[in-house]
Every structure is written in structure tokens, then in C-alpha cells.
Design a protein around this nucleic acid. Structure first.
Length: 469
RNA sequence: GGCGGGAUAGCCAAGUGGUAAGGCACGGCUCUGCAAAAGCUGCAUCGUCGGUUCGAUUCCGACUCUCGCCUCCA
């Protein structure tokens, strides 16, 4: 079975075929963070989704170039730089670094290219000049340059490819701040924003006068630079369909006259504790908030990967506890396999991987994937004790190789076996003594003490086992 | 108002025109001195009302509830 994905352009699940004539290289662009604050769990759902898409493509044998922009100049950023009396670079650098740390903690593979908007001003200006030359952009009285939807449509181009729009019914929203006024039409959007006093020293010279890029143009400029005028995949959160992605298409196709992107993928949002995230409801979490509660990045990643990317997902702390328990079961099984394999290397089970792949390639049916994995875990546990001794290491190594393949897509890895500190080992030894002396009361007390210190002790046929909670 | 999702067990979440994966929680059992985030195992008729059909949770219609987007937004 070939990889099938839901393409927002066609509103249907389609087989993914790369543009590359060799069918090997794939260009993928994901709208990255605007670095004005720590990213929240909703943002992370989208980035983990992008990582899953990338890993799936790599699992399928494609050579992926993953590009993710860093938006480091934008209204909110400028506002905060001004408020905090800092510099743009210093301010955005801090949140960019935090973002990349979090991305790593969540087990996401680092994008190959991470272009910053402020380092592509020349490309942005060149793109705007092209649009002006083609007659689909104009400079307004306020000094800003806008994209004209009407002129664009006049060229036979389609605005509104990702969703049905009724432009005539659209009115300028009340939430549009004092930002865009001199446009010929409300649907037009800014390509270049003329410098205003509040911008401070955040501005660049350009043929249109001093100013800064509009919101959408950077993605067009940077994706075209990194991946070419037409590329395979572009992803982002569902809220970006309009206006951001629609405007990207207009700018890019308006400038190049070529189709911009073959496949558009959009991830659904999430709710937290059944409600839309908001700081006032107390259900607004950054990854840091969750780590501070004692959860790990892989547990958060696991939970974010339990539901289909096009469905709204309800993220709960209860669910996160469940994720922790569920992962511990996988860890236990893999850890036993490691012991049994004793370093032996074998080939993965292609029959099982085929089933795994079928679910995965079916528009990333991750829930079905987990279903198959837990069935595999149960079967592994069942067979484990009845494998003939001479077959044990082979049997386990084969299973281990299979898991490694699976995990190359899921990226939850296996929890490192924590080495017990001296204090914990001493308690474990004291408990063993007590047990030997049949002082079970004392043994149980020590066990409770260990639990309070975050360690679980298990008596197994092979001796005691200490596990960090 | 326009457009688009969703409604499956206590919670989360797949799926199918022929009597419903998986995870968490819970119960039972096994191992154990007792336990265990050890192992096995049990646990739903799919929002409401009509229709199509031999048969619908799955198709159609209506309704109810719910979520999102309509130029800050993952």
C-alpha cells in the first residue's frame, strides 16, 4: 500500500506521489513558531504532527528535506521588544532557543533548514518586487505594499483554494487593529508594512521605503528559496488555512506563475480538559509547565500521538497519567527483550511491519497503529516464557529489531534504565535482609519508603528489580 | 449569517452494510510472604427520530448537542 494523505487542496485523501522524477526526494515545509513566547501544548501538537509526517515519509524510504521557518519579526514581537526595552535579536533568540529545546524534548527530529525571517529580507523584497512588476501588488498611500486579490483574480488565478470563501460577504473584522487601512479592498493583505514610530529600530530599507515584511510573505520567500517554486508538502495548524496559507499561495503563484504546493496538510487543534485553552481557565500549558509537573517529553509526545491529526483532541492531565502508565508497559516489554537478546542483532519481522505500515500509510491512522502495537506487546509477553532456550536470543533480537523500526516512526524511544543511587540501593538491600529474616513488616515499610522516594521495587524470579517512577 | 468538523463504554480513541481495535481506569486470576507501573483475563450495540436494506453503529433525511474558521491564532 502506498502512502495516502488528506490534501486540503482537493479535500480528499490522495496517494502521495513526490514531484521528484526519481520519486525519492521530498520537500516539506512546516509553518514554524513566531518566537514571542514559549510554545504551548496546542502548538506542540502541530509540530509533533509534522514530525510524524516526516518520519513516516522517511520510513517509506523518501529522502526528506524538512524546512521550518522561525518568524522573528512580527507585531507582537515588536510590541514586547519595545515594552521590555530589549533588542529584537536578544528577545527572539531566547524564545527560539527555548523552542528548539522543547522540540528536542518532545523527540522531534530537527528540521534540516530553519530559516529566520530577518535573515531573508532580501529574498522577501525580491518577491514583492516581482509581484509589483506583475501588477498584482500596489503601494498604498500609507507607504505599505499590498497584494491585490482583485488583480490576482483578474489574471485568471484562483484565490480561495483551501476553503470556500465568500469574499463579498466578508467585512473588515473589528479585531483588525490600527494596522491596515489604506488598502483598496478589505481582502487585500500587506506584503510590506511601512515603518511607523512604534517599530523602534525594527525596520529595513527597501525600494518601497523603510519598513518590515508582512505576515505571510516570509513563508513564500523562504520556502521557495529552500525547496523551489513548486514543492511537495506544506503543513500547519488548521487555523492557518485562511488567511495565512491562502495568502501564501496567492503570493507565490502570483509571483512565479507556477503551482506552489502539491499537498497541503492541516492538523486539527486540541482542547485541554474539554475546553479551549485559555490562561484564565487555568488550562493553558507550555511544555515547561508539564515537565514541572513531573511528566516527560516522551509522555507528552505519546499522548499527542494517540489521536488522528485531523480530529480535535482533548488533552487532559488524566490522559497524561494514562500515557505514563501505558508507556511503562511498553518499556517493560522492550527491557525484557533487551535482556533476552543479550546484544544479538537480527532482522525485523517484515510481516508485522507490513501491518504496521498499512495503518500508518492510511492517512496516518495512528490509533490503529497503537492498537497493532499493543496487540504485539501482548503477544510478545505471552510467548516470552515459552521460547525454547536455544531460540531465546534470536527470538528476542528479532522482536527488538521490529520495535526499533516501529519506533523510528513513533519516536517515543525506550526509557533509559535509571541507575539506582546509593541511598536507594541501600534501602533495597535492607529490604532483602528483612525479607530473609522474614521480617515482612519491615520489608513492606521499606518498600513504601522507596515508593515515596520515587522507586518501585519488584521481586522477580531473577531477583529484585528497581524502577524509577 | 457563511463555511467546515464532531457525537462510539467511567475517561481517551479506532473501525465496519452483516452483530464493535487499542489505551487508561475498574473487576477476576497467576506469580508472590504480601505486593507490584509483573503477566494473563473480563468489561460497550455505537446522540435522538424517521427512511433505504434481508440486515445500519456504518448509507440518506430531519433534529439535538458540541467544536472550529470567517483576516492575532498551531
Amino acid at each position: 500500500m502506498a502512502l495516502k494523505l488528506f490534501n486540503t487542496l482537493t479535500r480528499s485523501v490522495q496517494e502521495f506521489v513526490p514531484l521528484d522524477p526519481q520519486k525519492k526526494k521530498v520537500g516539506m515545509y512546516c509553518c514554524g513558531p513566531t518566537v514571542y513566547d514559549f510554545a504551548h501544548i496546542g502548538n506542540w501538537r502541530t509540530f509533533v504532527f509534522a514530525d510524524l509526517v516526516r518520519r513516516t515519509l522517511e520510513f517509506s524510504g523518501y529522502d526528506v528535506t524538512h524546512v521550518m521557518n522561525i518568524t522573528d519579526v512580527e507585531d507582537k514581537i515588536i510590541k514586547r521588544v519595545r515594552e521590555q526595552k530589549t533588542t529584537l535579536r536578544e528577545f527572539t533568540g531566547k524564545f527560539e532557543a527555548a523552542f528548539l529545546d522543547d522540540l528536542k524534548a518532545l523527540g522531534c527530529r530537527e528540521p534540516h533548514v530553519k530559516p529566520r525571517a530577518t535573515e531573508h529580507i532580501a529574498e522577501i523584497i525580491a518577491l514583492i518586487e516581482k509581484l509589483v512588476a506583475r501588477g498584482v501588488a500596489y503601494k498604498a498611500a500609507d507607504g505599505s505594499v499590498y497584494f491585490s486579490i482583485e488583480k490576482y483574480r483578474g489574471c485568471g488565478c484562483c484565490y480561495g483554494q483551501l476553503l470556500k470563501l465568500n469574499l463579498d460577504e466578508m467585512r473588515a473584522g473589528e479585531r483588525v487593529a490600527s494596522d491596515e487601512y489604506e488598502k483598496e479592498s478589505v481582502a487585500d493583505f500587506a506584503l510590506w508594512k511601512a515603518r511607523v514610530p512604534d517599530d523602534g529600530d525594527v525596520f529595513w530599507p527597501s525600494p518601497f521605503g523603510e519598513g518590515r515584511p508582512g505576515w505571510h510573505i516570509e513563508c513564500s520567500a523562504m520556502s521557495i528559496k529552500a525547496l523551489g517554486e513548486t514543492f511537495d508538502l506544506h503543513l500547519g495548524g488548521e487555523d492557518l488555512k485562511f488567511p495565512h496559507h491562502e495568502d501564501e499561495i496567492a503570493q507565490s503563484e502570483g509571483a512565479t506563475g507556477k503551482p506552489f504546493v502539491k499537498f497541503w496538510l492541516h492538523g486539527a487543534h486540541l482542547l485541554v480538559e474539554g475546553k479551549k485553552m485559555s490562561k484564565s481557565l487555568g488550562n493553558f500549558f507550555t511544555l515547561r509547565d508539564l515537565l514541572a509537573k513531573g511528566f516527560t517529553g516522551r509522555e507528552v509526545r505519546y499522548l499527542l500521538l494517540t489521536s488522528h491529526y485531523r480530529e480535535t483532541f482533548n488533552f487532559t492531565l488524566d490522559g497524561l497519567h494514562g500515557a505514563k502508565t501505558a508507556l511503562a508497559r511498553i518499556d517493560e516489554c522492550i527491557s525484557k527483550l533487551r535482556d533476552m537478546a543479550a546484544g544479538k542483532i537480527e532482522q525485523a519481522d517484515d510481516v508485522y511491519l507490513g501491518q504496521f505500515r498499512d495503518s500508518l500509510e492510511d492517512d496516518l491512522n495512528i490509533s490503529a497503529v497503537w492498537g497493532k502495537i499493543y496487540e504485539w506487546i501482548r503477544q510478545t509477553n505471552k510467548e516470552m516464557d515459552s521460547v525454547p532456550p536455544v531460540m531465546r536470543s534470536f527470538w528476542a533480537a528479532r522482536r527488538l529489531a521490529t520495535w526499533d523500526k516501529i519506533d523510528s516512526v513513533l519516536g517515543v524511544g525506550v526509557k533509559a534504565e535509571a541507575e539506582a543511587p546509593a541511598e536507594i540501593s541501600a534501602l533495597a538491600a535492607a529490604r532483602a535482609e528483612a525479607k530473609k529474616a522474614k521480617d515482612f513488616k519491615r520489608a513492606d515499610a521499606i518498600r513504601d519508603e522507596l515508593k515515596a522516594k520515587g522507586w518501585v521495587i519488584e521481586d522477580t524470579p531473577k531477583g529484585i528489580k528497581l524502577k524509577k517512577i
